[in-house]
Design a protein around this nucleic acid. Structure first.
Lengths: 214, 214
DNA sequence: GCAAAATGTGATAAACCCTCGTATTTTGTG
DNA sequence: CACAAAATACGAGGGTTTATCACATTTTGC
């Protein structure tokens, strides 16, 4: 009834919950198709250029169906972003859970950086999703929460290695290391491959040094 | 004639040149008012929520006048961003130009970080401008060019201090230090002040350590 | 087999960006 | 000053997009 007003009202709040969670198999499959279509379109042109009509068409559903499960455009991007963060967190938790000594931390962290760099290179969606990030408050908060969660794993590992360090200090370090990693990745994939590799290597060196000693 | 098509066509190109540079004093003043209005609106709600009609109204001009000097919405944001980068580069160049020894570099860099943090805290516009950054190719390139330019000053200083180091390595380090600084600032101003200060301090420590030795 | 819930549809309203024809003001020149 | 050309100012309207809603169809529970 009032076009963009609803989205505007949401703009400084959280993302609205799905209007209705798909309960039947048929609709669950359709929702998957919608997300897949959105993901592909974002990878092609960026989330800003993604058109709801195009998502619907590519998913083989009507525009109405799209809005049945996603309250607005941002909710689609948010849903994709949330999936990625969940996958990422699981991966990170697994890698850092059993770190016992400094060398183990080095190994685990180094491996994680490589994996993430690979993901960024392979899936432009990630960059684009996190790019819209800052402009959208809900996504910004999701990213921050994600960074905090990931940093927490690092903090846990660090606490085991340096029981005497100031916790607040460790948290700041871990959060910063994480956030900088994402910045480094974004930078790395926006330049040519050779320079990108050098940048990631430099980041890794810096981060490891920071994690290596108090 | 075709609404958003034109803007879409520009989307993957550079920002179009101002349709017409203001040559009379009257129009120059009006353009200033437009930019000021845009800046205020961006600070209030973000560049995405900024409405062209609102900019025109607040600047006391008509929509038509707005489009006489700015080919599209992005061009306004771009113009603001360009000013900031120019100011920033001048400031950085001045601070790093005469750095002769390691201690001088520490001092100069430390001061720069403080100044930038102050700017980020005082002017939310900066964050918002750089936030839309990733979504907009032209802005992304402006930011990269800016980072490279700023990094160049660091590289120049570093080369004087470590003549034997690999130039490519130095460039990567400097670019990374710079880009990470911006990421750290964005992070810092999105959490409470106390944590923000801690994060900036941690960044400064990391960066200084990285700049301190090869 | 049937009512209720879930799902599917697309014309349409509302809001936005930007253009264009036209009116007004300033500049340049004799 | 007069007058033409250039610069500037204006805002209604075109076209695009997001999101809604009343109604049609399918599935579920019993």
């Amino acid at each position: 009834m009032e076009g963009r007003i609803a989205a505007k009202a949401e703009q400084d709040g959280a993302v609205a919950a799905p209007r209705r969670a798909p309960s039947q198999q048929r609709s669950r499959e359709r929702v998957e198709r919608m997300l897949a279509a959105a993901s592909a379109l974002i990878a092609e042109q960026g989330s800003d250029a993604m058109r709801m009509g195009e998502v619907a068409e590519r998913a083989g559903v009507s525009i109405g169906s799209l809005y049945q499960f996603f309250p607005d455009k941002r909710a689609i991007v948010w849903a994709l972003a949330e999936r990625r963060t969940a996958e990422g967190q699981a991966c990170i938790a697994a890698a850092l859970k059993d770190v016992g000594d400094a060398e183990g931390l080095r190994q685990a962290f180094s491996g994680l950086v490589d994996i993430y760099y690979g993901l960024f290179l392979a899936e432009p969606v990630m960059r684009d999703i996190w790019s819209g990030t800052q402009a959208d408050k809900a996504l910004r908060e999701l990213e921050l929460a994600d960074s905090r969660a990931n940093a927490e794993f690092l903090v846990a590992a660090l606490k085991r290695l340096r029981p005497k360090a100031d916790p607040a200090e460790l948290e700041a370090t871990a959060l910063l290391v994480w956030q900088m990693g994402e910045a480094a990745m974004r930078l790395a994939i926006s330049v040519d491959r050779e320079e990108g590799d050098r940048l990631v290597a430099a980041y890794k060196r810096m981060a490891l040094r920071e994690l290596g000693d108090g």
